[in-house]
Each structure stands twice: as C-alpha cells, then as structure tokens.
Amino acid sequence: MSEHRPFHRAQPRDWWAHKPYLGYTLRELTGLGVALYGGILLAGLVCLSRGAEAFDSYRRFLASPLSLLIHLLLLAVMLWHVVTWFQTMPKTMPKLILGGRHVPQQRLTVLGVLLAFVCSAVLIAAVVAVGGLS
C-alpha cells in the first residue's frame, strides 16, 4: 500500500452557491455584468457600421423601458464591482507605509471608492457641459 494517502474532504458540487463562498461567487459574477455592458456597446458599434437606419433602431431599443431596466440592473452590478474591487485591491498590493505609519486596508478601500465616485462624477459633468455647449 502506498504511504501517500492524502485526506480529501467531500465537497458538494454546488459549494459556490452557499456561505461562506456565496460572497466570492457574487463578486466574480460582477465580471459578467461588466462584460455584458461591453456587449451592449459593441452592439451599438455594429449598428453604427451598418448605417443610420440600423443605428436608429438601436437607439429606439436604448430608449425602451426594458433597456432602462437592464441598465439599472447593470448599474447596481457595476457599483458592487466598484466596492469589491477596492476591497480586494489593498490585499493584492504591498503594505503601504506613509510617513512611517502603516495605512490600514480599510482606509485604502474608502479612498478608492471615493476616487471612483469623483472620476464618474467628473465624466458625467464634462459630458453634460459639452451637451450644454452644443
């Protein structure tokens, strides 16, 4: 008989659907939401390349209540991505020491989310400003 007999604990196939792994699964699923939004933009590019008529039907879809619902859901997913992204970021980088003091991970998370808020707010403000000028 072999000396090497590692212990394998039985793991159910749907381990990812239960605590404590559910949070991990939900965080990873935000990647699907990010990619789906990329797909909506790509669909717009496809319609754009086909001409004005195709692009107008794309715009009619974007103005529909179904599209509004989809985008509100994607926005919720994206916001969860923002929070979890900056929760993970401090864990993936070396310890940050500023002025001889260790910056706690939680503060980096808060700063990251604040930075994201500023970036998004500036982009919306800039586009609204361009729209006001035109």
Binding site: L62, I70, M78, V82, A116, C119
Partner: peptide, 15 residues
C-alpha cells in the same frame, strides 16, 4: 470599469 463604469452606464444607457 471601477473608475468610469458607473458614469458610462448612466450616460450611454440612461441619460
């Protein structure tokens, strides 16, 4: 996507 994703969805999908 973390920095500009929310703004992009609000702009291209809603506003």
């Amino acid at each position: 996507s973390a920095l500009f994703g929310p703004a992009l969805i609000i702009l291209t999908g809603i506003m």
